[in-house]
Write a protein that binds this DNA or RNA. Structure first.
Lengths: 203, 203
DNA sequence: GGTGTTATGGTTCGATCGCACCACAAAACG
DNA sequence: CGTTTTGTGGTGCGATCGAACCATAACACC
């Protein structure tokens, strides 16, 4: 029956099984047999599409990252043509929070991968760039806010951006553990945002 | 040769082996045989002192938590008899940062345990209390700072405390990944502290 | 319509896993 | 001094792991 199948779709189907297992029981539960059963394919297919187990884990992560990036872009685009800098920063930070099943699972997968990130050089390279890019993005938005008069000149954009991103990441953890509701998490973010974005746009 | 051995020391010796393996390769590398080899005891001893593998993981975590608590108390006591509220909050937050090998490894162990925390009810109970207690502690210190005039009355103590703890936790992650130096991490914390603790003590 | 390539299922192997079980040495106790 | 308790090593079992291997059905191409 072959040759009419969409390889990307197959890889995605398998990758999603990896995510589900990783969020459910950590990386140690991501065995070839379990993935095969979860994805409802034969174990042989995993080898065919990804090769070894390490390559499977890496491949599944890359697909996840590509997904996350696209979804973030979509959500930011949904803010409209001329959003305020505050709304943009808010959108970026909220992307880090486990506000829906998709984002929750994504962060669980990242946590499951964390230790390998520190050890395996191949994985480390994948992780190195993203977070710093986020900080720079937020810092740039705050500085634009200063240009537009939405943010006081007294604010240290870089320092505040770094702490905002770090804070969102930390809050994410508490939400995952059930120590805080998503609503409280958003409220904490907004509390900091209203502190930083005090001035009214000069326009 | 038995009966003159210190059980607590033996358990600690084994627990330390668990930590080392967990920080090195995640929980999936913490097998009974590996732990036995790392702790330089026979595999049989693990069963004798901890029982099943799950109990071993849980026991090792409890020892780690007890350690962390005692070390934190020591470090806070080292601040002197009448430290300022700002210094106390700083001490608490810095405890969350991987500033030395001990704290770095401790946080790596926590990350390795994170997924099981969400799944296994026995582990979940252990984790549930600690972080919230930290937030309450910091919030209390900030409110004391308001009483003493170190902190403006306009500050929302609870919200700031939550964001400080979350921020410290998020910064910890970036330091572990090598994206930020420990010095930068401390500087970010201090930047927020000097914002909150503006007023001079009324004496 | 053969022929080669692509996609898939099934099976097997050696290693390793958690854990139960057995043997025994040293101390404690009567 | 004998017996019980406590601490330790070794070994074996059933299950499962990752990965290699074999077979073959469906399509592409000529």
């Amino acid at each position: 029956m072959p040759r009419q199948v969409d390889h990307n779709q197959r890889r995605r189907q398998i990758a999603e099984a990896v995510w589900r297992l990783a969020t459910r029981g950590g990386l140690e539960d991501v065995t070839l047999r379990q993935v095969a059963a979860e994805a409802k394919v034969s174990a042989r297919l995993l080898q065919y599409y990804f090769g070894t187990r390490d390559q499977l884990l890496l491949g599944a992560l890359e697909i996840l990252n590509a997904d996350a990036e696209q979804r973030a872009r979509e959500r930011l685009a949904a803010l409209g043509q001329t959003p305020s800098m505050q709304a943009l920063v808010r959108g970026v930070l909220l992307e880090l929070l486990p506000l829906d099943e998709e984002r929750r699972n994504r962060h669980l997968v990242y946590i499951a991968y964390f230790i390998p990130f520190l050890v395996d050089p191949a994985l480390a390279k994948v992780a190195r760039e993203a977070p710093h890019a986020l900080e720079d993005l937020v810092a740039g938005l705050i500085m634009q806010g200063q240009e537009l008069g939405e943010v006081s000149r007294d604010i240290d954009a870089a320092a505040e951006a770094a702490f905002l991103v770090a804070g969102a990441e930390g809050i994410q953890t508490t939400v995952l553990l059930g120590q805080r509701t998503p609503e409280d998490a958003v409220a904490l973010i907004d509390h900091q945002l209203t502190r930083i974005f005090t001035a009214t746009p000069r326009n």
